[in-house]
Amino acid sequence: MTNNTSLVDVRGLRIGLDDGTELVKGIDFSMGHERVALVGESGSGKSLTARSLMGLLADSLVVEADHFQLLGHPVLSYRQSQWNRLRGQQVSMVLQDPKYALNPTQNIGRQVAEPLVLHQSMSSKARLEKVEYMLDAVGLANPAKLRKMYPHQLSGGMGQRVMLAIALINDPQLLIADEPTSALDHAVRDQVLALIHSLVEERNMGLLLISHDLQQVADYCERVMVMYQGILIDHLPAEALPNATHPYTQTLWSCRPNITKRGQPLPTLDRQHLETLK
């Protein structure tokens, strides 16, 4: 697999409600086997965009696009059964809060093995080995014991590692991570992001990382796309962030508090000015 293959190619993506309100207002983007961050405030449409790439939008939403290809498949016309063959096998997703994303009544081993059961035929012994290998790969100690544990026995960080194991067990080509660290403690956030980064790089996968914290994700991505009210307003390489020219990107980049900014107000968005820029 080379880096030139296009994983996602979207042109004129529009997502709206039944009544005609547009939430995503015609965005174009494409990505290959690379790490891309999609950044914006809540309500900017970033999560909707990500969910449309998984075919996971609610039925009440209307999706339209001039061109919508995922791993070369014209997925816009796909039925759920066709999506099911793609999801969890070639594209997978890590959600925000492992507390809600893991099934509380099933043990970890069974949940990690589920994508294998659905998409691959292998002996139960091979499956078990793969599960333990995967739990080890996401940095969880003692996989044999962990396999038999239940979600409530894990901390948030461990839960998110388990989610990652589930997402990566079928060696997908594209991983979508929707705010994977915002339910976690500050100290654990960087660990989980670094883990995602190294696993994705190792496997030469594509990563679409969604976040509202530009500074935090910048270290783990090559490119950054910035969304504001359903529009992609800025698009730049991660190294160029400190010198961003768009005022929205500038503010997102510099609004994070730290000890050096004590005593001075934090930069905030001039929303009226942004309206004129749109």
Binding site: L57, D59, S60, V62, V63, E64, D66, L76, S77
Partner: peptide, 8 residues
């Protein structure tokens, strides 16, 4: 090519 993903 415009295709609706929803079933109405």
């Amino acid at each position: 090519m415009i295709i609706s993903q929803t079933w109405r």
